[in-house]
Simulated assay, not measured.
Amino acid sequence: MDIKGELRVAKLADVPPGGLLSVDFGGVRVLLAHADGELHAVRDECSHEAAKLSDGELEGATVECPWHFSRFCLRTGTALDFPAMDPIDTYAVRVEGGDILLSRAAGGADR
């Protein structure tokens, strides 16, 4: 990580519009989602039963869990549908020179 607490995790070209990509961020699996013209980063794990959200479906600014179909807001990490009730971690995303950089300072659950 650099002095700002950021870590380069992927290239912008790796996450085309409408795309999902699971990356490693300091030992944590993080989902990058390119939705509605923005890049979002959330923990790549459903808060209900730990399914990989990167195996789910992108629907606007939400991602749907592949196991029980809970949806999560990519901006806030909020669980939008049962059976998930707890939010997921969100991460700050920045693009620099075609690289995607993540840092922890965004919000959501703090697990």
Rank of each mutant, 00 (worst) to 15 (best):
A105F: 06
A33Q: 02
D44R: 09
D86S: 09
D2E: 15
V30F: 09
H34S: 13
L20T: 05
A92V: 04
D86F: 01
Y91L: 10
D36L: 03
D99P: 04
T90L: 06
D55T: 08
I100W: 10
P87I: 04
G18A: 11
K52M: 12
E38M: 08
R43A: 14
R75C: 01
A10G: 07
A79N: 02
V95C: 12
F72N: 08
A84C: 07
T78D: 01
T78H: 00
Y91K: 07
M1I: 14
K4T: 15
P87M: 08
F82C: 07
P87F: 01
G77V: 01
E96A: 11
F69H: 11
D99T: 06
L102I: 10
A35T: 08
E96L: 13
F25D: 09
D110N: 10
L21N: 09
G37K: 10
T62Y: 04
E6D: 12
C73W: 00
G18T: 14
D36Q: 13
G5V: 08
M85E: 13
H48N: 04
D86V: 03
T90K: 09
D81M: 02
G56A: 09
A10C: 09
G97N: 10
D55L: 14
L58M: 08
L39Y: 02
A50T: 05
A106I: 01
F69W: 05
E57A: 13
H40N: 04
A41V: 11
